[in-house]
Computed example of a mutant assay.
Amino acid sequence: MQKAIISFVISLVLGFGLGYLVFDVVMGGSDEAAKVAQADNKETPAATEESTESKEDSAATTSASDNILNQKGCLGCHAVESLDLKGGATGPDLSKAFENVEGKHGKPIEEFLKEPTSAVMSSVIGGNPLTDEERTRVVDMLKQASEK
């Protein structure tokens, strides 16, 4: 009887753990992280010492309504520290993705966003593919992040 109880408890813990992993992390249930990132972006103004033109560029980049990375849920797993975009810690920081993706995945970032070579990103983008216009906006934003 004691062996059955131990087996049940272990199965229960594993079941809840896998359920959380699949439904909350993998399936995009991390909307809370994206909402937190949006709230952080609304509360955090652009750097106070920059020129007016730089402030406008930064504000446009980090604006929650215009930010393609927020709109597509990228910040649920990724952050872009060079643009002061807070996000999830599950995926890598995307500040240098524009420069590093080709070396790491063997194709330019534009192609990677069409057909990712990583298993995780294949399932994410496969379930929510980017349009050509969205892909261009993401690439432009990541290029801007790599230049800072």
Rank of each mutant, 00 (worst) to 15 (best):
L14S: 10
K148C: 03
K143M: 12
F23C: 05
S122M: 08
I10F: 14
G127P: 07
S118G: 09
L85G: 04
V26P: 00
A79T: 15
V139N: 07
K143P: 14
I5P: 03
M121N: 06
F23S: 08
I5T: 12
D93A: 10
I125D: 01
D57K: 15
A59N: 13
F23R: 07
K104L: 15
G28F: 12
E115D: 14
V36T: 14
T52Y: 11
L12I: 04
S58L: 09
V25P: 02
S51K: 13
K143T: 08
P45L: 11
Y20S: 04
S65R: 12
Q144C: 02
G15I: 06
G73L: 05
E50F: 15
G106K: 03
P108T: 00
F23D: 04
E56W: 00
Q38S: 15
F8S: 11
G88E: 04
G88L: 02
M141D: 00
L113T: 01
N70Y: 04
G126K: 11
D84N: 05
E133L: 04
K3R: 15
A59C: 01
K72I: 10
S7T: 15
D132A: 01
V138Q: 08
K35D: 14
D40N: 15
S51W: 10
A89Y: 05
S146H: 09
Y20H: 13
A37H: 06
A33H: 05
G91K: 03
E115P: 01
I109P: 11
V22W: 14
C74W: 01
G126H: 11
F98P: 08
G103E: 13
A119K: 03
P129V: 01
G91L: 06
D84E: 04
E102K: 08
A37Q: 04
A37K: 07
I6F: 09
K148Y: 00
V36N: 06
L113F: 11
I125H: 00
K148R: 07
L113I: 08
V26N: 00
G15K: 04
M27G: 00
G29F: 05
D140Y: 09
D132Y: 02
S54F: 11
E111L: 12
L75Y: 12
K143A: 14
G76T: 15
G88C: 08
K148S: 05
S95Q: 13
T48R: 11
L113A: 02
G76D: 09
K148N: 04
T117Q: 09
C77F: 10
E32F: 14
D24T: 15
K72C: 09
G73M: 03
F98Q: 06
V120E: 01
K72H: 09
V25R: 01
E134N: 01
D140T: 08
E81N: 15
